[in-house]
Design a protein around this nucleic acid. Structure first.
Lengths: 150, 150
DNA sequence: GTCGCTGCAAATGTTTTGCAATAAT
DNA sequence: ATTATTGCAAAACATTTGCAGCGAC
């Protein structure tokens, strides 16, 4: 899945119609790579140039594209769904949250995490597409402070 | 946190009132260990023996107990929040959330995860105490369905 | 007796659905 | 020409909030 036309060909391959509304929804995602867009985000963006689209159409299109594996539907617990283009190799968000000073560190994916995900797939058949990993604990500074009685 | 009375003592310690409604909500969770209960699940269960409770009270109580750390509030992307008794730091589950059918599988933290956490500590000095891990993707069933064009 | 807590009903915000009109194939 | 797709409005959800009365302390 490299550009808008690839997506539209996928639609054709499933005998689905290539409507201007669907094209525009797809374009929004290619214009906002890596972003987690809510239905309303997409709606607003599409309406800037095509003000007569209905929100229901946005929802139906997002559902459709998710079912086709073109989009991934994500939930971040804020009461609305978010969508983004399904990318094979996604950055792996891994956050270290210090419960003492509140600082958040970000870590790059590593080979051990890849192996953990491989193990998940091997054991359960579940294909990991995205992840939200939060580790809570003490950062190096706070560990030193605590040891020193600060 | 071992039984209902421990929870009720925690309420008292925070100068919160021990109402029969709160007691009943807590009891539901102790009667359903390990389950992910929605507000409506709890509501239905409480109403079986106390039919005049309001749903708003259930929501307010679930919020309160989550703030106190007695419950964990979980989001699995099916449009409703789920709650369970806080299991304590080291035993928290690892969730596999299928973005197509919404099913949630649970996995126990395993040795590969322990090594990942060891690696985090070695590289950054961060001491992992707790974690919240969500992997999004396709469960085995949905992968098969998608391949078959269903 | 105080004021936190409750039940009810109404409000909110997101997502879904029914339906007649429209347009892609 | 067919029939999927659309826009609109209404409906369906989960959750929150305002408020007067109730009840745990």
């Amino acid at each position: 899945m490299f550009d808008v036309d690839d997506v539209l060909q996928t639609l054709a391959a499933h005998e689905l119609k290539l409507t201007p509304q669907r094209r525009r929804v797809v374009e929004v995602f290619f214009r906002h790579p890596g972003e987690h867009l809510s239905a309303d985000d997409v709606y607003a963006e599409v309406r800037r140039e095509h003000p007569d689209v209905g929100l229901a159409t946005i929802y139906r299109t997002l559902d459709l594209l998710s079912d086709l594996g073109i989009l991934d539907k994500l939930e971040f617990g804020d009461g609305r769904s978010r969508y983004e283009l399904d990318r094979g190799e996604r950055e792996r968000h891994l956050h270290l949250i210090c419960t003492r000073c509140g600082r958040v560190e970000e870590l790059q994916p590593d080979e051990l995490l890849a192996r953990l995900e491989g193990e998940i797939e091997r054991r359960t058949g579940f294909l990991v597409v995205d992840r939200e990993l939060k580790f809570y604990g003490l950062c190096a500074g706070c560990r030193a402070d605590r040891q020193a009685g600060r």
